[in-house]
């Protein structure tokens, strides 16, 4: 890129940042405006959980969270539509294998803990799912070609589980309850836990599958691609063994 143009862009971006800083400062020192925070804390007893962030995510703004899960799913579908996954890395050394063996069960256990604790303390589906996804990344780095995920058919069920359970609960509530994703107070906690469990599995599977970087290995594509993912690549031999 042209040097002068880069300088001009730098100056314009600096001016923009100064404007943003001024707006931010004016907002902080200005009169306090009505915010959603106090309302969220006030309604907490009716939400079914006692941690405000979880209440915001799964109750007040459940629509938003549902759509975010859909975004995750669409991103993964985009990755899968690009073709088969590149082959894995070379086999892990003994140290990494042992490390993975130690960390994986702990990560899965911690993920379950985070899921449960989300009801009353920092935690919840997104943290738990991110941890599960990172366990998958570790497995893939340690040489597992599918990042610990099951075969393709089961993988498809896993990645849609979050959106599917969320939508089903919402539609059932719309049909027999008070409205779409308006939980009855008595069962709100259990509905939220059900949705969060499915969302955790879906987020973990989606992130791990996204890291794999293509359609799950070992799947025949309907139109055979001219370029096989592993042909001629010396690092792919181990993966079949």
């Amino acid at each position: 890129m042209n040097r002068d143009l880069a300088l001009l862009i730098g100056i314009l971006v600096s001016l923009f940042a100064a404007l943003l800083l001024w707006i931010f400062y004016a907002t902080l020192v200005g009169d306090p405006v009505a915010r959603l925070g106090p309302l969220a804390l006030e309604q907490l007893p009716a939400s079914g959980v006692s941690h405000p962030v979880t209440a915001v995510l799964l109750n007040y703004r459940a629509y938003d969270t549902l759509l975010e899960l859909a975004v995750l799913l669409v991103a993964l579908l985009g990755i899968w539509s690009l073709g088969p996954a590149p082959s894995g890395f070379r086999p892990a050394g003994p140290a990494l294998t042992v490390l993975a063996n130690w960390i994986l069960p702990l990560a899965i256990l911690t993920s379950g803990y985070l899921l449960w604790v989300g009801g009353h303390a920092p935690g919840g589906a997104f943290q738990a799912g991110a941890l599960l996804g990172s366990a998958g990344v570790l497995l893939r780095l340690a040489g597992h070609e599918r990042a610990g995920l099951p075969a393709e058919a089961a993988q498809r069920w896993l990645v849609v589980a979050g959106v599917a359970v969320f939508l089903m609960v919402g539609l059932l509530l719309a049909a027999f309850g008070e409205g779409f994703l308006t939980y009855p107070k008595a069962v709100a906690k259990w509905l939220i836990l059900l949705i969060e469990t499915a969302a955790t599995l879906a987020i973990g599977a989606t992130l791990a599958a996204a890291y794999v970087g293509g359609r799950p290995p070992g799947i025949r594509s309907p139109c055979p691609s001219s370029e096989s993912p592993s042909s001629g690549n010396p690092s792919s031999g181990h993966a079949r063994s």
Binding site: V71, L72, A75, I79, A130, L207, A210
Partner: peptide, 10 residues
């Protein structure tokens, strides 16, 4: 954060 990670992967 989670959405940003998945968009980055794509």
């Amino acid at each position: 954060i989670v959405v940003a990670v998945s968009a980055t992967a794509l």
